[in-house]
């Protein structure tokens, strides 16, 4: 899911060929999860079908000579995805990291992404705190486990907020 938004978002700064898109993705988000070409082309085919990208063909057409450009509908989709906080759950970092980096790359407010996510996390933490204080020892222990994990996410959000300037300097072209 986040891969297709990430690819779409990368097109906001200008049209790209498939292989270029893969390389940019790997440089920006890759690390231990670089993409296969096949994944890029199948994702582009789906985005094309949904009207979120369009193809600019070049002279001497072959499959590799296709340049993908984002459409207005695509930009709206990316904005909507970046702005919408994720449901709090463990192992969220890669999606959040993608959103923060994309926001920086496309000139959106990355602090807003972090704040919206913090609000969503705290909402769930409040609910768990209420449940724990109204419940028995078992509720207390179960809720505490979830609360400590959510707190760890929030610390990551806090640290990321404090490092946004450095991250921006690294990811901006």
């Amino acid at each position: 899911m986040s891969v297709s938004f990430a690819l779409l978002g990368l097109l906001e700064n200008g049209p790209r060929h498939g292989y270029d898109l893969k390389r940019t993705y790997d440089d920006t988000f890759g690390r231990d999860r670089s993409l296969h070409y096949g994944q890029v082309y199948s994702t582009m085919a789906r985005l094309l079908k949904n009207g979120l990208v369009e193809v600019e063909s070049e002279p001497g057409d072959g499959p590799d000579r296709k340049r993908y450009a984002i459409t207005h509908a695509g930009i709206t989709d990316v904005a909507e995805w970046i702005g919408r906080p994720e449901k709090p759950e463990p192992y969220l970092q890669s999606t959040l990291y993608t959103k923060v980096v994309l926001a920086l790359l496309t000139g959106r407010d990355a602090n807003e992404v972090l704040d919206a996510q913090r609000a969503e996390h705290l909402r769930l933490m409040r609910e768990l705190t209420r449940r724990k204080n109204d419940g028995d020892l078992a509720d207390e222990l179960i809720c505490d486990h979830a609360l400590f994990h959510l707190e760890a996410d929030l610390r990551w959000l806090e640290l990321t907020a404090a490092r946004l300037d450095r991250l921006a300097a690294r990811v901006r072209p």
Partner: peptide, 23 residues
């Protein structure tokens, strides 16, 4: 600055560089 303490509140306001982001 502790989220588990803030979870006892009804809502949060975030202070950053002397400004408040109030939701």
């Amino acid at each position: 600055h502790e989220a588990r303490v803030a979870a006892y509140s009804d809502r949060e306001a975030v202070v950053r560089d002397g400004r408040v982001r109030e939701q």
